[in-house]
Write a protein that binds this DNA or RNA. Structure first.
Length: 332
DNA sequence: AATATCCGCAACCGCTCCGAC
DNA sequence: CGTCGGAGCGGTTGCGGATAT
């Protein structure tokens, strides 16, 4: 039994707003302020759902909104924050005065996501594509048939895009690579696991052919590796037949794209990794995520802690944090 | 010039959160 | 403590303009 609709949708106007309707909203808000949007249509003389009125106001009519294009600084901030907290658009938007969550979300989906994919970066995990593929292939103890199915839930757009990592971004906007955080890894799980339960046999050949055909030169070795079914028999980082460190080293240049890239440590990210709810903790937590993280990477490097070591450390941490994923009973 | 395709944005949908009762 | 309902959120859809054929 779901909750009843907020209004009678058959009797309210939908679609684009007219200047007259906008004027009514503006006049109402000027006189009464915002709040209790369900009453606004009636009081303002609009044949619209209250929810629709609220959206129109918050996404378009609010006087403090910017309507010009995103600046490179805003762009970089969005990428960094998305890397840190994922698609928490409202939280990201709060860091961008004059922008709404809808603005940020649309900008991400239409511009930034594609930009990252062209750079060979998975926009979901903010990891190099080859590493994402490696991660997918390295889930332990899977029979070949299951493992090949995993490939079908790899971001289709990613497969369709130019997967060749490029050292130089033509536009010169080599956006920050965000070092993998535990949260990123959790995001990876969150985004990819649900798809594993799907029956994907019909997709699989397509995906593999996409992967193979769209791959060339520098990254071809990695993907050929993945495209070979027998190579899935054992791909844990500690498996003798597969050296993850060596594998990752082949992409290490990706991680030096921008030495001044923003990075985060787990300590910086106090955000609850599983905070899918609209927790307010995240608001405060992201405050510190764009600064101090730099020190973390530098410190680690100074300690002789290589990037690959970091990945392996985090792999161990993740395995410790999610032991059920290693449990044979955990059925994909 | 006409048509098809792509792309960006505004708006909608369905869900969760959370405060009031 | 449970229910109700407003508010807010993220994902998705669909329209209209831009671009390609």
């Amino acid at each position: 039994m779901g909750r009843p609709p907020c209004c009678d949708k058959s009797n309210v106007k939908r679609g684009l707003w007219t200047p007259e309707e906008d004027a009514k909203i503006l006049a109402y808000v000027a006189n009464h302020g915002t709040g209790n949007w369900t009453l606004v249509p009636k009081k303002a003389g609009l044949n619209r759902c209250g929810k629709s009125c609220r959206l129109r106001w918050t996404n378009y009519l609010r006087p403090d909104l910017k309507h010009d294009s995103f600046t490179p600084q805003e762009e970089e901030l969005i990428i960094n924050l998305h890397g840190a907290i994922g698609s928490r658009w409202s939280l990201i938007a709060r860091r961008l005065p004059g922008r709404t969550d809808n603005d940020v979300k649309n900008y991400w989906n239409t511009k930034l996501r594609k930009k990252l994919m062209k750079m060979g970066i998975d926009p979901v995990t903010h990891k190099p594509v080859s590493q994402v593929l490696s991660d997918l292939g390295s889930i332990s103890g899977l029979p070949n048939s299951t493992t090949t199915n995993q490939m079908a839930f790899v971001n289709k757009d990613l497969m369709m895009s130019n997967m060749v990592p490029t050292k130089t971004e033509p536009s010169g906007s080599n956006k920050s690579m965000v070092e993998n955080t535990q949260e990123d890894q959790v995001h990876s799980w969150e985004h990819h696991f649900p798809y594993q339960v799907l029956t994907t046999e019909n997709v699989q050949p397509h995906v593999f052919s996409e992967a193979a055909s769209s791959t060339s030169s520098s990254s071809s070795s990695n993907l050929t590796h993945l495209g070979s079914p027998q190579s899935y028999s054992c791909q844990t980082p500690h498996c003798s037949s597969f050296d993850w460190s060596e594998f990752l080293h082949s992409d290490s240049f990706m991680w030096s794209l921008n030495p001044s890239s923003l990075v985060q440590s787990e300590a910086d990210l106090s955000i609850n990794a599983k905070s899918n709810g609209h927790d307010k903790q995240g608001v405060a937590s992201i405050e510190g995520c764009c600064g101090a993280g730099m020190e973390y990477q530098t410190k680690k490097q100074c300690e002789g802690h290589s990037f690959v070591d970091g990945i392996l450390d985090r792999d161990s941490e993740l395995r410790a944090a999610f032991p059920e994923l290693l449990d044979a009973s955990f059925d994909y």
